[in-house]
Design a protein around this nucleic acid. Structure first.
Length: 827
RNA sequence: GCCGGGGUGGCGGAAUUGGUAGACGCGCCGGUCUCAAAAACCGGUGGAGGCGACUCCGUGCCGGUUCGAUUCCGGCCUUCGGCACCA
C-alpha cells in the first residue's frame, strides 16, 4: 500500500546521500477524505438526516437492497449492491420524494451454527457480534439507511411473526406436512435444499447426498402457480431474464389426463400427456418405480423379485442422478397390461426411473416414434414403434407437427388440429380430461437445524399434530443448548421438546424442525414498514402506503428462489387480508458481480479486495465512485486498482476546483453562455441517467463538466451545481464542499437542480458532408441551416469537390442537424 | 439439447426511431513546473501507409436491405449464465 499512501498524503521526498527524508506537504486546502468523512457520519446521525419522513403529500419511493447474511465483513458485491441503492435513494430525496431506505440482517442459518460448533460460542452471540461489525462498515460507507427501521430476523421479535404467519397459512391449508423423498446429508444430519447440493454433493462436507423419505413441512406454493405465472406479465420493470427463469421454473404445461383400464384388474391407470395427438402411437406404458400401484400389480408375478430389487436401487439414487438426462435409461416389464381406450389394444406396463413420481401422476404413455425419451428406451429394450405422424421412422424420434396417419378416422388431419379435437373427444367419451400441469413443486420448509425459526406445532399422542395457540408465541429457541452432538440440537433439549398439548393438556412433544431461512426473507420488506410493531407482523396501513417496493436491487442468484418465494408470500398474505398489494417489487435490478482477474472474487481463489482496505486508503466516496463508474450496473465489474486511483483523482480535481483560490478558476471572459449550456446539459444528462441506472455515463458527464471548468473557469453557481449533482454518488465530499460554500443545511436536503431545455440547445453545430456515404468534410454551421444553404457550402468545399470530379450527382440526402449525403456516379 | 445475455482500441467502456464509431476513465507518450522525482496542470493516443496535406482499412465471421449499418434482416462462429429425462 506504500504507493497508495503516497497518493493520499502527498509526501515530499528528498534524497540526501542514501537517506530518504519524507515530510508531509502542508496543503490545507487539499482533498483529505480520511480526515473529513467520519466527521459527517456523526453530524448526519445527530441531525437524524436519514430518518424516514412521516407521510405527507410528497410521493413515496421505496428503495430496497437485498439484506445480507451477517458474516461479519462486507465484500465488494455488498458494497456494489448498497451503493447502487443509496445513490438512487439520495437522488429521489433531493427530487422531493419521501424515501424509505432500510437495512436489516438475514441472520438465521447454518454458518452461525457451524461457528457455534467450531468455536464453542452461542449462535446468537456470534451473529449479533457479526451484525455490529457489518453495520459499522455500512455506516462508514455513508449509506443513508434509517436505522430505526432495522430488521434482524434472528430476534424473537421478528421470528415470532414467522410462527404467527405459519399458523395463518396452516389454518388456510397452505402449510401442510407430508412424507416426501428429500436430499439427505448423513454427516450433517439434515435435509438440504436443492441449491445446497452441488454436483450431487453436500456443499459443506462434500459427501454424496442421498434420498430419504421423511415427514416434512411444505408451503403450498403450487396453489398460486398460475397466478404467479400470470403476474409476471405485469412486471415490466423486471429483467426479461428473471421473468423467463421464473416462467421456466413454474413450468406450465397444457395437456390431457387419460385413464387406461388395467387388464384383469379393477383399477385404471391415469397418465398425463401434452401430446394427445400421438395416442394412436402408444406401444407401452411406463410408471415411476415408486408409483403406489406397482407393488400391488407386480405381486405374485414372475417379475416380483426383480422389480423389488429395481425399485430399491432406484430409490437409492439421488435426485441429481435421477434427473440427469445423460444417464442411460433402465427399466423392466412388470407383467401387467393396460388397454388403450382408442384402439382397445393391450400394451405392456413397464417401470423406469426416467419417470418421476413427483410430476403429474408418475406415469406416462410411451410413444417411441414421436418422443425422444421413449425412443431411446424402446431402442434399448426392443419395444415396438408405431408411426402416427408423417415424417416418423428415422434414426430418431420425430417430434414435430405433421400429418396424422394410422389413427382411425383422424388420419389425414394436421396434428395441431387433431391435438385440439382429440382432447375434446377424450372428454366427451369419458376417457379422460383436459389438465394443466405445473413443474413447480411445493416449498419444503423443514430444516433439522437449531438456528432457525421453530415451527409452532406440538405432537400429542391423543390429538395428533396441534398448532400452538397464538397467545403462546413466540416459541423461543432455548439458550441452554449444547452443540456437541451431530444433528439437531433441539432434539437434545428436554426443556424445549417436552410440553403440554394445547388441546387436551396432556404431555406432548414439540416439533423440532425449524423453518428454512427463505421464510424470513419472504416478508421482511413488509416488516420494514413498521419494524417495532409488537402486536402484528406489520401494520396494514403502513404496508399499503409504502408497498410495492419501487426499486429492488440484488444479485441474479435469487432470480427463482427468494424472488419467487417473496411473490408467493405477498399473495398469500394479501389473501389473509393483511395488506392489499399483489406484486412486492415493482422494478428489479440484478446487478453484475465484482470480479478480479476475470473471475468472481473468492477466498479460495485469493483474488478478493477488502472494502475496508480501500476505504482506509482512499475514503468511502472514492470506493463508491469507482464502483459506479467502472461498469454498467447489470454487467460484471472488473476490479482495477488504477481505476480506483482515477476516481480518487477526479474527486481531488473537484475539491481543488471548488476550494482553491477563486480567481484561479474564475470564468474566462465571454464564456457565460457556454458555461450555462454545459451546466444545463449536464443536469439533463445526469438526471436522465440516474433514472435509467446509467450511473457510469452520468459520472462521465460530470467529469466532462469538471474538465470544462478547468479549461474555461467557473462561477459560484457553476461549482454549486456540480456539487449538487455529485451528492448522490459521493455524499461526503459533496457535504464538505457545500459546507465550505457557507451553507448551514445539508447538501442532501437541497433540491435537485432543474434544467431549462432551451438552454441545452446548440445554436452552432457540426454538420457532416458525405459523398456516397463516406465522410469527406464537416462544417460548423447554424443549427437552423437550410438544405439549400448547406448544399451551397458543401459544393464550395475543396475536400468535397475532389470526390465530385468526373461524377454526376444523382441525389442529395439532407438530415437536419446531422448531415448532407451527396450521391454520385461516375460519368 | 433448450432458453437467455454478450462479442467495439492495449484495458474498463461510450454511441442504436439507421446518420461524424471509440465520449469518459485507465494505461502509454510528450510538454510545463522541479536540482531531480512525485503530485498537479496542459497536449497526444484505433490500425496501416505517407515528410506532409491526406488516403485506405476498421464494431466476432459471411451474406442481404439501404444514399448510408456497431445499429435492421438471414445464416454461422464464439463466450458467459440459467434450465436440463417435467411426459
Amino acid at each position: 500500500m506504500a504507493v497508495t499512501y503516497a497518493l493520499i498524503f502527498r509526501f515530499e521526498t528528498t534524497f540526501i546521500g542514501n537517506v530518504i527524508l519524507v515530510k508531509q506537504r502542508n496543503l490545507p486546502m487539499d482533498y483529505r477524505p480520511l480526515e473529513n468523512e467520519e466527521k459527517w457520519i456523526h453530524v448526519w446521525a445527530k441531525e437524524g438526516l436519514n430518518k424516514t419522513q412521516a407521510h405527507s403529500d410528497k410521493p413515496k419511493y421505496y428503495v430496497l437492497e437485498m439484506f445480507p447474511y451477517p458474516s461479519g465483513k462486507l465484500h465488494m458485491g455488498h458494497v456494489r449492491n448498497y451503493t447502487l441503492g443509496d445513490t438512487l435513494a439520495r437522488f429521489k430525496r433531493m427530487q422531493g420524494f419521501q424515501v424509505l431506505h432500510p437495512m436489516g440482517y438475514d441472520s438465521l442459518g447454518l454458518p452461525a451454527e457451524n461457528a457455534a460448533k467450531a468455536h464453542h460460542i452461542h449462535p446468537e452471540t456470534w451473529t449479533l457480534a457479526k451484525i455490529e461489525e457489518m453495520k459499522a462498515q455500512q455506516v462508514r460507507l455513508g449509506f443513508s439507511y434509517d436505522w430505526e427501521k432495522e430488521v434482524v430476523t434472528c430476534l424473537p421479535t421478528y421470528y415470532r411473526w414467522n410462527q404467527w404467519l405459519f399458523l395463518q397459512l396452516y389454518k388456510k391449508g397452505l402449510a401442510y406436512k407430508k412424507k416426501a423423498p428429500v436430499n439427505w446429508c448423513t454427516p450433517c444430519q439434515t435435509v438440504l435444499a436443492n441449491e445446497q447440493v452441488e454436483d450431487g454433493k453436500c456443499w459443506r462436507c462434500k459427501t454424496m447426498v442421498t434420498s430419504k423419505e421423511l415427514e416434512q413441512w411444505f408451503f403450498k406454493i403450487t396453489h398460486y402457480a398460475d397466478d404467479l405465472l400470470k403476474g409476471l406479465d405485469m412486471l415490466s420493470g423486471w429483467p426479461e431474464k428473471v421473468r423467463l427463469m421464473q416462467e421456466n421454473w413454474i413450468g406450465r404445461s397444457e395437456g390431457v389426463q387419460i385413464y387406461f383400464q388395467v387388464q384383469n384388474k379393477p383399477e385404471t391407470l391415469t397418465i398425463f400427456t401434452t401430446r394427445p395427438d400421438t395416442v394412436y402411437g402408444i406401444t407401452y406404458m411406463v410408471l415411476a418405480p415408486e408409483h403406489p400401484k406397482v407393488l400391488e400389480w407386480v405381486k405374485d408375478t414372475p417379475y416380483e423379485s426383480d422389480a423389488l430389487a429395481y425399485i430399491k436401487k432406484a430409490k437409492q439414487k439421488t435426485k441429481i442422478d435421477r434427473t440427469d438426462a445423460k444417464q442411460k435409461k433402465e427399466g423392466m416389464f412388470i407383467g401387467q397390461y393396460a388397454v388403450s381406450p382408442f384402439t382397445n389394444e393391450a400394451v405392456p406396463i413397464w417401470i423406469s426411473d426416467y419417470v418421476l413420481m413427483d410430476y403429474a401422476q408418475g406415469a406416462v404413455m410411451a410413444v417411441p416414434a414421436h418422443d425422444a425419451r421413449d425412443f431411446e428406451f424402446a431402442k434399448m429394450y426392443n419395444l415396438p414403434m408405431k408411426i402416427v405422424i408423417e415424417g416418423g421412422g428415422g434414426d430418431e424420434a420425430y417430434t414435430q407437427p405433421g400429418v396424422i396417419i394410422n389413427s382411425d378416422s383422424y388420419t389425414g388431419m394436421s396434428s395441431l388440429e387433431f391435438k385440439a379435437l382429440i382432447a375434446l373427444d377424450i372428454e366427451k367419451k369419458g376417457f379422460g380430461k383436459k389438465h394443466v400441469q405445473f413443474r413447480l413443486r411445493d416449498w419444503l420448509l423443514s430444516r433439522q437445524r437449531y438456528w432457525g425459526t421453530p415451527i409452532p406445532i406440538v405432537y400429542c399422542e391423543a390429538c395428533g399434530p396441534v398448532p400452538v395457540p397464538e397467545s403462546q408465541l413466540p416459541i423461543e429457541l432455548p439458550k441452554d443448548v449444547e452443540f456437541k452432538w451431530e444433528g439437531n440440537p433441539l432434539d437434545h433439549s428436554a426443556a424445549f421438546t417436552h410440553t403440554l398439548c394445547p388441546t387436551c393438556g396432556k404431555g406432548a412433544r414439540r416439533e423440532t424442525d425449524t423453518m428454512d431461512t427463505f421464510v424470513d426473507s419472504s416478508w421482511y420488506f413488509l416488516r420494514y414498514c413498521s419494524p417495532s410493531d409488537a402486536t402484528q407482523p406489520f401494520s396494514k396501513n403502513e404496508a399499503n402506503a409504502w408497498l410495492p417496493v419501487d426499486q429492488y436491487i440484488g444479485g441474479v442468484e435469487h432470480a427463482v428462489l427468494h424472488l419467487l418465494y417473496a411473490r408467493f408470500f405477498t399473495r398469500a398474505l394479501r389473501d389473509l387480508g393483511l395488506h392489499d398489494v399483489e406484486e412486492p417489487f415493482q422494478r428489479l435490478l440484478t446487478q453484475g458481480m465484482v470480479i478480479k482477474d476475470g473471475a468472481k472474487m473468492s477466498k479460495s481463489l485469493g483474488n478478493t479486495v477488502d472494502p475496508s482496505v480501500i476505504i482506509n486508503a482512499y475514503g468511502a466516496d472514492t470506493a463508491r465512485l469507482f464502483i459506479l463508474f467502472g461498469a454498467p450496473v447489470e454487467r460484471d465489474l472488473e476490479w482495477s486498482d488504477t481505476g480506483v486511483e482515477g476516481s480518487f483523482r477526479f474527486l481531488g480535481r473537484v475539491f481543488r476546483l471548488c476550494t482553491e483560490h477563486r480567481d484561479k478558476y474564475a470564468l474566462q471572459p465571454n464564456k457565460e453562455r457556454e458555461l450555462q449550456k454545459q451546466l444545463h446539459k449536464t443536469i439533463q444528462k445526469v438526471t436522465q441517467d440516474i433514472g435509467s441506472f446509467s450511473y457510469n455515463t452520468a459520472i462521465s458527464k460530470l467529469m466532462e463538466l469538471v474538465n470544462f471548468m478547468y479549461m474555461n473557469g467557473t462561477t459560484q453557481q457553476g461549482v454549486e451545481t456540480l456539487v449538487l449533482l455529485l451528492a448522490p454518488f459521493a455524499p461526503f465530499i459533496s457535504e464538505e464542499l457545500w459546507n465550505c460554500f457557507g451553507y448551514k443545511s445539508s447538501v442532501h436536503k437541497a433540491t435537485w437542480p432543474i434544467f431549462d431545455p432551451a438552454l441545452t440547445v446548440d445554436d452552432v453545430i457540426t454538420m457532416v458532408i458525405q459523398v456516397n456515404g463516406k465522410i469527406r468534410d464537416s462544417l460548423e454551421v447554424s443549427a437552423e441551416i437550410t438544405q439549400e444553404t448547406l448544399e451551397k457550402a458543401a459544393l464550395e468545399s475543396e475536400k468535397v469537390q475532389k470526390f465530385l470530379e468526373k461524377h454526376t450527382i444523382i441525389k442529395k440526402i439532407f438530415v437536419p442537424k446531422k448531415l448532407l449525403n451527396i450521391v454520385v456516379k461516375p460519368e
